[in-house]
Simulated assay, not measured.
Amino acid sequence: MKKLGNLTVAAAAIALLAGCTNNPYTGEREAGKAGVYGGIGAVSGALIGAATSSKKDRTKGALIGAAVGGAAGGGYGYYVDTQEAKLRQTLQGTGVQVQRTGDQLTLIMPGNITFASNSADISSSFYPTLNSLVKVFKEFDKNGIAITGHTDSTGSQQLNQDLSNRRAQSVADYLAGNGVPSARISAYGAAASQPIASNDTAAGRAQNRRVEIDLQPL
């Protein structure tokens, strides 16, 4: 059992080291998300491999399980790492924010760069950014694309609901019209129900007027 534990830890360490990268801000070596997922997969795989093997083959089973589990665990983590890096590079200087929570990537597109006031017509200046997103979404095709329109609290609930619906649908239609499979895309309006800042100030209301795209595993 002790030997198995040592092998499991070693497998996890190898997976973590394989996923290590240099932090671009501090220069320090650190485990990337793929390495973390790989370590978790290696541990799980080792335990399962040992449990499903005969007593004399437990060491071999643990090593095989660790290798398979590490590859599977690190696979999607590496995929998201790569997609995140591509999106940050592509969207640099556009005003679109890229946020990551676990395996979910969120793109926050401020209303002042996407639509004219009280309009669901995409601003012509935003087309190049959307065209760049189309290329990334075609390259990375393992994500569902959930588009949500948001407004501030100014105006009636019905007006804001309608506007947020139409803005989300405008973005969805543009992506689908340029070759992103519509089966991957969903769109809806949240009106003013999900503020990210106070609606009591002009600056806060400006932040709340936005379209978000959530990228999650299909």
Rank of each mutant, 00 (worst) to 15 (best):
K3M: 13
T8E: 10
A10L: 15
A13V: 13
I14G: 01
L17R: 04
L17F: 15
A18Q: 01
A18E: 08
C20G: 04
N22Q: 03
N23Y: 03
T26S: 15
R29C: 00
E30R: 02
A34T: 05
A34L: 00
A34H: 05
I40C: 12
I40D: 07
I40L: 15
S44Y: 11
A50P: 09
S54T: 13
K55Y: 02
K56F: 03
G61E: 04
G61N: 07
G69S: 04
G74K: 03
Y78V: 02
R88S: 13
T90F: 03
T94Q: 06
T94Y: 09
V96C: 08
L105A: 01
T106V: 14
T114D: 11
T114F: 02
S125V: 06
T129Q: 07
L130G: 13
N131D: 15
S132L: 11
S132N: 14
S132C: 01
V134K: 07
K135V: 03
K135H: 04
V136A: 13
V136W: 05
V136F: 01
V136H: 09
E139N: 12
D141V: 02
G144W: 00
D152E: 10
T154V: 15
S156W: 09
S156M: 09
S156L: 11
Q157A: 12
N160W: 03
D162N: 14
N165S: 12
R167F: 10
A168M: 10
Q169Y: 06
Q169D: 10
D173F: 01
D173K: 06
L175P: 12
P181S: 10
S182C: 04
A183C: 02
I185E: 12
I185V: 08
S186A: 12
S193E: 04
S193C: 02
I196W: 07
N199C: 03
T201S: 15
A202T: 09
R205A: 14
E212M: 11
L218N: 11
L218C: 05
